[in-house]
């Protein structure tokens, strides 16, 4: 059984048919980049995998749990699926440490000392052990995004969804975030990345999914996709972003 499995998923925003029958399977340990034009449904697809958006037809199964519109089920699902956002979405009134510990205390019911230990380990892992007591507002974008990654990892998810997590960063800060992702890949974490960084998609992604007109238009191993695109649409997309 694949870790993530989408079966003919259809999603509408009112009359806007955004996902038109998406089939996609992602195995544990895979790093998959999702690329495509603006408005092709990349974010929507990602958000259907953790229940932030409801779909109208088809099925989504993640870590053997069906993703449905049900508060309780979605809360259970949140232990399997982490998400990092373009805009970080850190809690500005809490310190970095509190951000990372909030859900481990409230949701995983870990003791304060256990939570603290875990938070320290994770912050060290993302290179921010000295920022435990800092407030997000005093950190650079790259640092904030690394805190957000640590906060997601604290729930020990099986798969991490990343929606353009470097797009809001100054170019010189992109590298430090990508480095963390590479490190996670090396540890065997399953990553699904919506990205505009074609270089990163090629170098780090095992597989690329090209979304077009609400469908998985073309998919394949990263080097294959970039060296040898099959469809006209992907060729013109790659030509445009290069």
């Amino acid at each position: 059984m694949s870790l993530v499995s989408l079966d003919k998923v259809h999603k509408y925003y009112g009359d806007n048919h955004v996902l038109k029958g998406v089939d996609l399977k992602i195995e544990a340990g895979e790093v998959v980049s999702i690329i495509g034009r603006s408005g092709s449904g990349k974010s929507t697809l990602l958000r259907c995998m953790n229940g932030l958006e409801q779909y109208q037809k088809g099925g989504v199964i993640v870590d053997n749990q069906s993703v449905e519109d049900d508060e309780y089920k979605l809360r259970l699902l949140s232990r399997s699926v982490g998400m990092v956002f373009q805009s970080f979405n850190l809690f500005p009134h809490m310190t970095v440490g509190q951000n990372v510990m909030l859900a481990t205390k409230l949701v995983l019911k870990k003791s304060p000392s256990e939570s603290k230990k875990l938070a320290e380990e994770l912050l060290e892992k993302v290179g921010l052990s000295d920022k435990f007591s800092a407030y997000p507002g005093n950190l650079s974008g790259g640092q904030q995004q690394r805190v957000a990654i640590a906060r997601s990892l604290a729930m020990s998810p099986k798969v991490l969804l990343c929606d353009e997590i470097t797009s809001a960063l100054d170019p010189e800060l992109v590298g430090e975030v990508l480095k963390v992702l590479e490190q996670l890949k090396a540890e065997g974490m399953t990553l699904i990345l919506v990205t505009h960084e074609m270089n990163f998609a090629r170098d780090v992604g095992d597989r690329v999914v090209f979304m077009n007109q609400g469908k998985v238009w073309e998919t394949g191993a990263s080097d294959e996709i970039f060296a040898n695109p099959q469809t006209e649409e992907l060729k013109s997309f790659l030509a445009a972003v290069r």
Binding site: N50, L52, S78, G82, F88, N89, F91, A103
Partner: peptide
């Protein structure tokens, strides 16, 4: 921001 709610949901907060 809506992102505050979304972050909480993805972390499993009620």
């Amino acid at each position: 921001p809506k992102g505050q709610w979304e972050a909480c949901r993805t972390l499993g907060l009620s």
